[in-house]
Simulated assay, not measured.
Amino acid sequence: MTADLIAVVLLLVVAAYACAGGTDYGAGFWDLTAGGAKRGKRPRGLIDHAMAPVWEVNNVWLIFIFVIMWTGFPVLFQTVFSAMWLPLALAAVGLVLRGAGFALRKPSRRLAGRRLYGAVFAIASLLTPFFLGAAVGGVASGRVSPGTEAAADAWSNPTSLLFGLLAVAATAFLGAVFLAADARRFDAPDLDGYFRRRALGALACVAVLAVITMFVTHGDAPHVWHGFTHGVGLVFVVLAVVATLATGWLLLRPSGDWSRITAIGVVASAVIAWGMAQRPYLIPTSLTVAEGAGAPTTLRWLALVTLVAVLLVIPAVVFLYWLDTHGELEELTDTDLRRDGASGHGAPQG
Results as ranks from 00 to 15, higher is better:
Val235Thr: 14
Val211Glu: 05
Gly227Ser: 10
Val211Lys: 02
Val216Trp: 03
Pro222Asn: 13
Gly231Lys: 13
Asp220Glu: 15
Gly227Pro: 03
Trp225Asn: 10
His223Asp: 05
Thr217Ser: 12
His230Thr: 15
His226Gly: 01
Phe215Trp: 14
Val211His: 00
Ala210His: 04
Thr229Lys: 06
Leu239Asp: 11
Val224Ser: 06
Val237Gly: 15
Val235Asp: 06
Pro222Tyr: 10
Leu234Gly: 03
Asp220Val: 00
Phe236Arg: 14
Asp220Met: 02
Met214Leu: 13
His223Glu: 08
Val235Cys: 06
Gly227Asn: 06
Val224Trp: 08
Thr217Trp: 00
Val211Phe: 14
Thr217Ala: 08
Ala221Gly: 08
Ala221Thr: 07
Pro222Met: 07
Gly219Leu: 02
Val211Met: 13
Phe228Lys: 02
Phe228Ala: 01
Val211Tyr: 03
Val232Gln: 12
Ala221Ile: 05
Gly219His: 09
His223Asn: 07
His218Met: 05
Val238Gln: 12
Leu239Val: 13
Val237Thr: 11
His230Glu: 13
Asp220Thr: 03
Thr213Trp: 07
Gly227Lys: 03
Thr217His: 01
Gly227Arg: 00
Leu239Asn: 10
Val235Glu: 08
Gly233Pro: 12
Gly219Glu: 13
Val216Met: 01
Pro222Ala: 11
Val237Glu: 13
Phe228Gly: 00
Val237Asp: 09
Thr213Ser: 12
Val216Lys: 02
Gly219Asn: 10
Pro222Gln: 13
Phe228Leu: 14
Phe228Cys: 07
His223Arg: 15
His218Lys: 15
Leu239Phe: 15
